[in-house]
């Protein structure tokens, strides 16, 4: 464990708490893509199957439980309490276009051709693109509540911090995980456009609005 990864995980945890806080305080999940949230459940469940057979650390164990539990809780809130505030008409990204290619790529690129390793690869590739329905929704509406942008910013920071973590691990432990690194770079890249608007508008106290 190094500081970059710890802060990255903390940002990830914070992003989820921000999202849950947004839903409870605004009593709404407006502007949140159900599809992205559902993809995150798929990501966590397929990746953390190793809860049953691999012990890493107490930290790792509880974080995994938190990510699975909180992502399921978010889906539950979106399907029950806040269902009326959800607008499927604007959440139109076709997730088959993500699930299909991720399945194929996971079958080709994995560390071992075994069910759990293929699912692990799948979860890494799927996480890298799971934010796309959310960014697509944002693009369609052209604006976002400030709290929603803080959620996305925290997620982006989480991904960005994993990059110095890998550089650090390469030099200190000689560890290289090409699958995680490739997918992670793609994932971080997806946030660049968002971050430009976040820094130039939201952090200057303006509303998040995309140029027409």
């Amino acid at each position: 464990m190094n500081l970059f990864r710890f802060l990255g995980d903390t940002a990830h945890l914070a992003s989820i708490l921000v999202l849950i806080h947004k839903m409870h305080t605004t009593k709404s999940c407006r502007g949140i893509s159900f599809k992205t949230q559902a993809l995150y459940v798929a990501v966590f469940v397929t990746r953390y199957l190793d809860l049953f057979y691999r012990w890493v650390s107490l930290y790792n164990f509880f974080m995994k439980l938190f990510f699975i539990g909180s992502s399921c809780y978010i889906l539950f809130l979106m399907k029950t309490k806040f269902r009326p505030t959800q607008d499927p008409a604007i959440d139109t990204f076709r997730i088959e276009y993500l699930l299909g290619p991720c399945t194929v790529i996971a079958l080709i690129f994995n560390y071992k051709f075994s069910p759990t390793e293929i699912l692990w690869s799948f979860s890494i590739f799927l996480e890298s693109v799971a934010i796309l329905p959310q960014l697509f929704l944002l693009q369609r509406t052209g604006e976002a509540e400030t709290i929603t942008t803080h959620y996305l910013a925290a997620l982006g920071i989480y991904r960005a911090l994993y990059i110095p973590n890998w550089i650090y691990r390469y030099f200190t432990e000689g560890v290289v995980d090409p699958i995680a690194i490739t997918a992670g770079l793609v994932q971080t890249g997806l946030y660049i456009d968002f971050f430009y608007v976040y820094v130039t508008k939201v952090l200057q106290g303006q509303k998040f609005e995309l140029p027409a």
Binding site: R5, D9, H12, D50, R54, V56, S57, N60, M63, K64, F67, Y111, K112, W120, Y162, N165, E173, G174, V175, V176, D177, P178, I179, A180
Partner: peptide, 10 residues
């Protein structure tokens, strides 16, 4: 040893 199988990150 092959560290790529460690899967110790979240």
């Amino acid at each position: 040893s092959d560290h790529s199988h460690k899967h110790d990150e979240l």
